[in-house]
């Protein structure tokens, strides 16, 4: 959406077969699938959320995925980070996930940014992708990702999970009255526990990550007409709750 790109060649019979369960749905059809195939999605973080996000988006036929992560795969990740295996212990997570995706769908072009991105690189990537999916594990990154998404009017699909609690929010920053991440959480000092200290229930990241992938498809297909509420999920209670959001006139990022 931010830069003009040459359209990819139309789907051949093998691809029509691959995506047939999408094509059967009148809400998607060939035109919707071509839209997905000509989209670029940036996934920030290749951990518990990034794995299901990348696997579902790659399988669903997003044309180009960029996966950014500077971490290496550790054995304690394998309880929930389903895009990595024992064979990839010690490997960079973005590269490991790219390998997994290349075995799943060669129609999806995957780029790995196997490093911690500086601000200039992150801003450049956000400017050249259609949607950003925040799967990161710290507030500093979340704040930066949000700032650049606001600046470039790039839709942001934000997910987070810790212990047995998950949160999901979609910020379609192309819309004039869209709230941003900082409208929801004005105070983002870095004192929260990470998964290393607090723990996280394995399948919970699958729930939140799958919903991030789903909302990304919804954004790309133009299915989101109204601002989405913030969704919270309590894994032990099996309960979802939703909270209406508003753009804040005093937001330090998007006012």
């Amino acid at each position: 959406m931010t830069e003009r790109r040459a359209l990819r060649a139309e789907m051949d019979d093998a691809l029509l077969d691959r995506y047939s369960r999408h094509l059967l749905m009148p809400e998607i059809d060939v035109s919707g699938q071509e839209r997905l195939r000509n989209s670029r999605v940036l996934i920030v973080g290749a951990g518990g959320l990034g794995c299901p996000v990348a696997l579902y988006l790659g399988a669903a036929g997003i044309g180009a995925l960029t996966i950014a992560d500077g971490d290496q795969v550790e054995v304690s990740n394998l309880q929930r980070q389903i895009g990595h295996t024992h064979a990839e212990l010690g490997e960079n997570k973005a590269i490991s996930l790219r390998e997994t995706l290349s075995a799943l769908n060669v129609d999806c072009q995957v780029a790995a940014e196997a490093r911690y991105l500086d601000e200039v690189s992150l801003a450049g990537l956000i400017a050249t992708h259609d949607v950003v999916v925040d799967c990161s594990d710290n507030f500093m990154t979340r704040d930066l990702v949000n700032r650049f998404c606001v600046q470039h009017k790039t839709p942001l699909v934000s997910g987070a999970a810790i212990r047995a609690e998950g949160q999901l929010a979609v910020f379609d920053l192309r819309l004039p009255d869209a709230p941003c991440y900082r409208c929801v959480y004005p105070d983002l000092s870095e004192d929260a526990l990470g998964c290393n200290e607090a723990g996280v229930l394995g399948p919970l990241v699958g729930v939140i990550g799958s919903m991030q992938a789903l909302e990304t498809v919804n954004v790309l297909l133009g299915k989101i007409k109204m601002p989405r509420p913030l969704l919270t999920f309590s894994a032990f209670d099996g309960q979802f709750q939703s909270f209406r959001l508003r753009k804040r006139s005093d937001c330090v990022v998007c006012r």
Partner: peptide, 8 residues
């Protein structure tokens, strides 16, 4: 009462 979470 909600708290921001950052785990990914």
């Amino acid at each position: 009462i909600l708290f921001p979470i950052a785990g990914g």
